[in-house]
């Protein structure tokens, strides 16, 4: 597989970051960085990572199955993650999640038909003091109200239309 030059550089750096003979350590960050570029972890990507790190396909697959951020099915281009853990729950996260479901017309771990958005109810993301919190891809949004979420989502839709 060929990756973008930036990703390739990142992988090369990862593979030399660990003690000699311990290159397997690069696996989890490698899968995550590759997934970010390619959208999801395909069979081809699994084989590529296994080959580069001298692992079997199964050794890669069992790791993917363990970590909640690694996924073999595509998600939306914008993955909307609503935290509903206690600190967020106390400040209205359940209503926010419900609002997100209504607005996007999809449920937990589902994707919109156009493939632009997917939605996930997630565990604590480390924004407890600025709750409720939403992460869209890797971007944090704090003290989110349903109105703010609407603005964020319509902002994404508008910016995509401009690009087109």
């Amino acid at each position: 597989m060929t990756f973008s030059p930036e990703l390739e550089q990142r992988i090369q750096k990862l593979m030399t970051s660990y003690p000699p003979g311990r290159v397997r350590s690069a696996l989890i960050p490698m899968l995550l960085y590759c997934q970010d570029e390619l959208g999801h972890i395909s069979e081809e990507l699994m084989a590529e990572c296994a080959q580069r790190l001298g692992l079997s396909r199964l050794q890669v697959d069992e790791v993917i199955g363990y970590y909640s951020m690694l996924h073999k099915k595509p998600w939306g281009k914008y993955h909307v993650q609503v935290c509903t853990n206690v600190s967020c729950l106390l400040r209205g996260a359940e209503d926010l999640m419900e609002h997100a479901k209504q607005t996007l017309g999809v449920g937990h771990k589902e994707m919109t038909e156009d493939g632009i958005f997917s939605l996930e109810e997630v565990e604590c993301m480390g924004a407890c003091s600025w709750a409720p919190a939403v992460q869209i891809n890797y971007d944090f949004h704090h003290n989110v109200t349903p109105e703010m979420l609407d603005q964020l989502l319509s902002g994404i839709r508008q910016s995509r239309q401009k690009v087109q």
Binding site: A26, I28, P29, L53, E62, Y67, S68, E123
Partner: peptide, 27 residues
Amino acid sequence: CYTHSGAGAYECGEESALLESLEGKRG
């Protein structure tokens, strides 16, 4: 000094599971 990314697992905040994860395995 290097950074190393996890990939979503509360369990990996536990020291020995973190070390397993650092070694490229399930936490």
